[in-house]
Design a protein around this nucleic acid. Structure first.
Lengths: 215, 215
DNA sequence: GCCACGAATGAATGATCATTCATTTGTTGC
DNA sequence: GCAACAAATGAATGATCATTCATTCGTGGC
């Protein structure tokens, strides 16, 4: 904080806890994306971060805690962005809010390969499912309820004949998950832009008066 | 094959290779569902199968091959059932075929917890994604093309205004993946029956003249 | 009833990896 | 400058686990 810190960038050894934690979490994301959860080792993570082997156990108590905080980082970031849209009252109408939600879900920060890899690595591992539940369950339930309410508002506005807010919301959430998964696993078969168009087509065919099938 | 085999069920030691392989693959599925890919050990798999530690390396050359054949088993079984429907010409019309596809995707054998766990365990692990690609890529592409063709037939029959076979097919496939994933991870939030209704609602809202929103 | 062979076993081996902690190194207050 | 402290390091440790293979055990042919 004082003068010596800024002297030279050559060898900053001591760094605040937050900086190191962030470095390590980012390195963990990269490792998960490259090698999968089971390929993550303390040696690989710390090498990726350009630090020494022992440092991860210094700042996080254990490997498990490091992985847990990495999942928390990714889900919290997504949730924050989503909540900002859902809670905002500055959109001109529900159509604009719907559009914003869709654009957010397929924006480049959200569909980042490393972040999606973390997400699905934890979902795929039964072992970490209880952990996942603790971190994501309440959040997921609340988001689903909010999206259902948003869809209900849209339906009430236009009197769509057969639309069902609850089923459409559950469908949208699952569709986004499935599109992300397919994009992550086979980006050639389902490029990000096509995934985006598929999701838009879904909303446009359910709410034709609010969302157009072309951007 | 002769007389001695049938004498007593007490201690059948020697068994044909196929029987042992099947036993081990089923035990592997159970282990993946219970502990995740990274929790699978030879000791756990062989104990689950009620056999000795060394036997998995006897029948499969390595742990990796055992896991690979387990994935192959699950995907081949699904693919076989799906192809039977898509290639059949004994349905009274495309609507019936569409209905059969939907019922198949949410039947109890397909939505079996152990099988879905295997599926998503491999999808979630970046390390095994090349393996996954080798096993599933061609199959997945072909299935997508077939479903697109089926949807195009449906669209041509009823002249749906805005429907797009390609986007609807990609959407259906992703939706089913996403619903399975949500059902597997949070069965309380999305029970199998609700997942089924969500998928039906999707098809019904896209092809209202062919599929009804209630079963 | 006995032999020979193949299937099955599980103790032993060696590799990998998380975690620890004695030592080193940079930083800050004086 | 220098002492006292905190951050960082990485060699050493012990635990876990896949794999091997010498031995045991059933089975079918005779």
């Amino acid at each position: 904080m004082t003068s010596t810190n800024k002297k030279k960038g050559l060898k900053l050894r001591a760094q605040p806890k937050e900086v190191r934690k962030d470095q390590l979490i980012r390195a963990t994301m990269k490792c998960i994306a490259r090698t999968g959860l089971s390929g993550v080792t303390m040696a690989r993570v710390t090498t990726e971060a350009g630090l020494s082997l022992g440092i991860a156990n210094l700042h996080f108590k254990s490997k498990e805690k490091l992985l847990l905080e990495t999942l928390e980082f990714v889900t919290a970031e997504y949730s924050r962005g989503q909540q900002e849209i859902l809670n905002s009252e500055s959109y001109p109408g529900v159509a604009a809010k719907l559009e914003a939600l869709l654009e957010f879900d397929f924006s480049t920060p959200v569909t980042d390969k490393d972040k999606m890899a973390v997400w699905f690595a934890f979902l795929g591992e039964a072992k970490s499912r209880p952990t996942y539940q603790r971190i994501c369950s309440r959040r997921d339930s609340m988001a689903e309820a909010q999206i259902t309410r948003l869809f209900q508002t849209v339906i009430d506005e236009a009197a769509y004949p057969h639309a069902n807010a609850e089923l459409t919301a559950a469908g949208y959430i699952a569709l986004v998950d499935g599109l992300w998964l397919n994009t992550l696993v086979a980006p050639r078969r389902l490029p990000r832009k096509k995934a985006h168009r598929v999701a838009r087509h879904y909303l446009a065919s359910t709410f034709p008066q609010h969302i157009s099938p072309e951007p």
